[in-house]
Each structure stands twice: as C-alpha cells, then as structure tokens.
Design a protein around this nucleic acid. Structure first.
Ligand SMILES: [Mn+2]
Ligand SMILES: [Mn+2]
Ligand SMILES: [Zn+2]
Ligand SMILES: [Zn+2]
Lengths: 137, 137
DNA sequence: TACTTGACTTGGACTTCGTCCATTGTAGGA
DNA sequence: TCCTACAATGGACGAAGTCCAAGTCAAGTA
C-alpha cells in the first residue's frame, strides 16, 4: 500500500480528498473491511463522503489490482489492500476474525488434468475455517 | 440424494408436497442452483409454492447436512445436493459454469502450524477459477 | 492567477437477495 | 374423522450494492 497514491497518480488518477481518505483507511496488515466499514471510517476524517463514492473508489482499486475482493462468509464483500503478495485466508467461524495465511505448495498443481474438464485453470482461492484462540477460551 | 425423503421422514420431517418438490428439483449431478432457480423449477411442478417456503426448506436441508451452501461468485448462494461426498469447485469466470472437482492431497496439511495463529482449523474450501471449453472457443 | 472542462461526487431511487411474521392450511396421529 | 402442532403463504422489511441526473472540483492552460 506504501506508495499507492503515487502509483495511481501516474496512472492518470485524479487525486481527490475522498480517494485519499479511502486509501488511508485501507492501509495496514490483515485489513479486510466491508464497504460500509470503510465508509464509517472514512466519514470520521471526511464527514461528507458518500457511500456511492466509497463503492466507486473500491471498485476502481479492485480493477487496478491494488485491492482484492474477498468473500469470506456469505455476507458483504471485504476489501483487502494486501493484493500484491498473493495469499489465502483463515477465518474464525465464531467471531469472523480473518488472518492472512501462506500455505506451502501450490493448490493449482493438486488438480489433476482429468479433473479439469477442459477448463484452462488460472486461479485458486483457499479458505480455512476454524476457531480462533479468543473464541476457544 | 437417493433416498433423501426416506431419511428425512425418519428424522421426523413432515412430508409436504412443497418439500417433496424442492427435493426433486435438487436431484442430480453438478447441480448448484440459487434459491430463486430452485423456486422457478419448483413452480413448474407446484405452481402455488412460495419463495419463503423454498428458502425455509433449503435452510432446513442445509442444517440437516443434506445440502451444502456454496458461495461461488459474490451473488446469490447456491445449493448443492452433493453434500455427502466432500468436494471442491471449478468455475468458469465468463459464463459461471460450475463443476465438482476432487483435488489430490489434503489442503489442510498444507497449512503449517506457524501459519495457524493458534486457531483450531477444521475445514477448508477450495475454489478454482478458469475458462470453460465453451467460452474459450 | 483565473478559466475551463471532463472527470468525480453526491443523495436518493432502485435492484437483488434474503429474512420475518401474522395468518391460513394441512400432515399425520388419536 | 377430528385435532393440533407444524408448515406454507405473501407481503413487509432489511442489508448490500448499483445507477443516475445534477452539482462540484482537480488540474491543465494561458
Ligand atoms: Mn488478506
Ligand atoms: Mn458441488
Ligand atoms: Zn473468534
Ligand atoms: Zn464458460
């Protein structure tokens, strides 16, 4: 996320207060906020920012490959600024906590040709579920 | 899915026309319908069946472990009658086609202890994405 | 600095997916 | 056949997200 704004400027992005705030809110590790959570935090810094703008900006960041969409539960999408180093997710079935994880090996290699049905397979998403230490206590 | 209705009856399920129709609609291989698709097909056999009943019945089947909920895209949940033999999914990014797949190896074993953050991990969901033969042509 | 303009933002209407609930109907046992 | 607890209904409601016409403004130009 470090020099996100610089990278975006060179791509012709118009730098507005709203976009700056959305980028700031997304900064950090193990960040997986919903659009409404992003909006709530953005409003603290820029009270007049609209929900529509947050959705627009998140969508653009996803298209540019700067942010990844994550579907953990069947609820709202979550937005992950850690899009540059590929990773997977571990989540707590009780409280919804999410951690970035890096399994060993390549799950793509585990899908034999006979199980590909003629598809050209390019991507794999892996979600581990369990109970976190806090919820187990 | 074979003797689903029999199994449900022994569990004290009241056997109604609506539930029978929902079960019939879900019968088959590589079936991953949304609730509204289930409703549309059910209506053909039982015109007065309501959306609420379809949702209720699907929810019950999921709780009983007879049907699995699958979240492929970020849209509607899909209902998978193939809940008894565990499997994963391969889907086409263009047309949304979904196939059941069985990767080799155990993805659970690929998550080292150091990447578990104290969680007790019990479940793993694996989704492959690509382009199906029809869409590639 | 002031001007200009196309890109950006806004709020509210709208859509989709799903839940909830009061009322009505009925499966299955007595 | 009758009873009644469980199930079905449809319409209101809610959450998440999209769309649009109108207003605003970033940044290039002079
Ligand atoms: Mn992540
Ligand atoms: Mn399946
Ligand atoms: Zn937890
Ligand atoms: Zn396809």
């Amino acid at each position: 996320m470090s020099d996100l704004l610089g990278r975006l400027r060179t791509r012709g992005w118009r730098l507005t207060a709203q976009r700056r705030v959305v980028a700031e809110v997304l900064d950090g590790d193990h960040i997986h906020l919903t659009a409404d959570e992003v909006h709530a935090r953005a409003v603290r810094r820029l009270p007049e920012i609209s929900r529509a703008t947050v959705y627009n900006t998140l969508g653009e960041l996803v298209n540019l490959g700067e942010v990844a969409e994550v579907s953990t539960d069947h609820r709202a999408k979550r937005y992950d600024p850690n899009a540059h180093r590929p990773h997977h997710h571990l989540l707590c079935a009780r409280c919804g906590a999410i951690r970035d994880v890096h399994p060993v090996g390549d799950p793509l290699a585990d899908l034999p040709e006979s199980e590909r049905f003629g598809f050209s397979v390019s991507e794999v998403e892996l979600t581990y579920r369990g109970v976190c230490p806090d919820c187990a206590a």
